[in-house]
Simulated scan of single mutants.
Amino acid sequence: MWSGDELDLDAYLERIGYEGDRGPSGELRPDLRTLYAVHRAHTASITFESLDVLLGRPVALDLKSIEDKLVHGRRGGYCYEQNSLLAAALERIGFEVSGRGARNRTRGDSVLAVTHAVLVVTVKGEPWLCDAGFGFQGPREPVPLGRPGSEVRQGEWTYRVREEEDGVLVLCLLRGETWRDLYAFSPQRYHPVDYVVLNHYSSSHPASSFVGRLIVQYPGDGVRQALVGRELTRLHPDGRAEQEIVGPDGLLAVLDQEFELRLPERDAEELVRIHRAED
């Protein structure tokens, strides 16, 4: 399903700095400990970014292209790339992985189209939400789906999943003393080909939030960071949000120091030119 047999698993594990346990033969076991370790290492190492969309380039979702970009090229990516790569790795390890399509709920009461890709991984009959591609508010670790309403602490951040009508599940994040909906998804399974369609909209439609917009995000253990356009936001677990403006002269330093993202010289120059044109 996810082309896991084509993945260079050793290169992927090196890219994410995986330090979890291995079996006697050196292989990873498809158990809950491995799932946690891989998910956490992935979200810690691969930045959320959609710079190719801003640069006017197509976003390819075949595994080789994703691997070349995120693993060997040490770039980041957005949800379709991130979770397709994670799905391939988990499938290669031996996990049961299926896709879901989610509606973003961080923008008020408006009903938005299904544009976010998430994964459901089943371990010993229990489903877990896995998502390496929701940016700075997303979970760093798997979230259990079999116990709706239970609070899950991940470092200084707390999540829960609540259930609505028709089996719709909603991932929520506690910010300060307020629970905020992040996204909602139904039980319907999504396949890689479905993400190709969603990716086409997200990377090219004029109404997409990614088109013509710089977006780079990172879900830190403590402070979480998002650069959207020229505004750099640092989000704290107690709900505080600090903003500062990043101009073209400081852009590359912020990408490097805050997001560990370094671009080839030609791409960096083009990105700065686009950033400067916003004046």
Rank of each mutant, 00 (worst) to 15 (best):
residue 3 S to M: 14
residue 5 D to P: 09
residue 8 D to H: 12
residue 9 L to D: 14
residue 10 D to K: 13
residue 11 A to C: 11
residue 12 Y to L: 12
residue 14 E to C: 10
residue 15 R to P: 12
residue 15 R to L: 10
residue 16 I to R: 08
residue 17 G to N: 09
residue 21 D to A: 11
residue 25 S to H: 10
residue 29 R to I: 08
residue 33 R to A: 12
residue 35 L to M: 06
residue 40 R to L: 08
residue 40 R to N: 11
residue 44 A to K: 07
residue 44 A to P: 05
residue 46 I to G: 02
residue 47 T to H: 04
residue 48 F to P: 10
residue 49 E to C: 06
residue 50 S to V: 12
residue 51 L to M: 02
residue 57 R to N: 12
residue 58 P to I: 06
residue 62 D to G: 01
residue 62 D to E: 02
residue 63 L to D: 04
residue 65 S to L: 08
residue 67 E to F: 15
residue 67 E to S: 15
residue 67 E to W: 14
residue 68 D to L: 15
residue 70 L to W: 07
residue 72 H to I: 12
residue 72 H to G: 01
residue 72 H to F: 15
residue 75 R to F: 09
residue 76 G to A: 08
residue 77 G to E: 02
residue 80 Y to C: 11
residue 82 Q to F: 06
residue 86 L to H: 00
residue 86 L to M: 14
residue 90 L to N: 08
residue 91 E to T: 09
residue 92 R to G: 09
residue 96 E to A: 15
residue 96 E to D: 14
residue 98 S to N: 12
residue 101 G to E: 03
residue 106 T to H: 01
residue 108 G to P: 00
residue 109 D to V: 14
residue 112 L to A: 04
residue 113 A to K: 00
residue 114 V to A: 04
residue 116 H to Y: 00
residue 122 T to A: 00
residue 123 V to I: 00
residue 125 G to L: 03
residue 125 G to H: 01
residue 127 P to D: 00
residue 128 W to K: 01
residue 132 A to S: 09
residue 133 G to E: 02
residue 137 Q to I: 05
residue 137 Q to L: 07
residue 141 E to A: 08
residue 141 E to V: 01
residue 141 E to P: 03
residue 142 P to G: 08
residue 145 L to T: 03
residue 146 G to M: 02
residue 147 R to S: 03
residue 151 E to V: 15
residue 152 V to C: 09
residue 153 R to L: 05
residue 154 Q to M: 03
residue 155 G to A: 04
residue 157 W to C: 10
residue 159 Y to M: 11
residue 159 Y to I: 03
residue 163 E to L: 15
residue 163 E to I: 13
residue 165 E to G: 11
residue 165 E to I: 09
residue 168 V to G: 13
residue 169 L to Q: 14
residue 171 L to T: 10
residue 173 L to N: 04
residue 175 R to I: 07
residue 176 G to I: 00
residue 176 G to H: 06
residue 176 G to N: 05
residue 179 W to V: 01
residue 179 W to S: 01
residue 184 A to C: 10
residue 185 F to H: 14
residue 188 Q to A: 11
residue 189 R to L: 00
residue 190 Y to R: 04
residue 193 V to K: 08
residue 194 D to G: 11
residue 194 D to N: 14
residue 195 Y to A: 07
residue 195 Y to M: 08
residue 196 V to R: 08
residue 198 L to N: 04
residue 200 H to I: 06
residue 201 Y to H: 05
residue 201 Y to M: 02
residue 203 S to D: 05
residue 203 S to C: 11
residue 204 S to T: 15
residue 207 A to R: 03
residue 214 L to I: 12
residue 215 I to V: 15
residue 218 Y to D: 06
residue 220 G to W: 06
residue 220 G to M: 06
residue 223 V to A: 13
residue 226 A to N: 07
residue 226 A to P: 06
residue 228 V to M: 00
residue 229 G to M: 13
residue 232 L to M: 14
residue 232 L to H: 12
residue 233 T to Q: 05
residue 233 T to P: 05
residue 233 T to H: 02
residue 234 R to C: 06
residue 238 D to R: 04
residue 238 D to Q: 09
residue 243 Q to W: 13
residue 245 I to F: 14
residue 245 I to C: 10
residue 246 V to H: 14
residue 248 P to H: 15
residue 251 L to P: 07
residue 253 A to D: 12
residue 253 A to T: 12
residue 254 V to T: 11
residue 256 D to T: 09
residue 256 D to G: 10
residue 257 Q to A: 11
residue 258 E to M: 06
residue 263 L to A: 10
residue 265 E to Q: 12
residue 266 R to D: 14
residue 278 E to F: 10
residue 279 D to W: 00
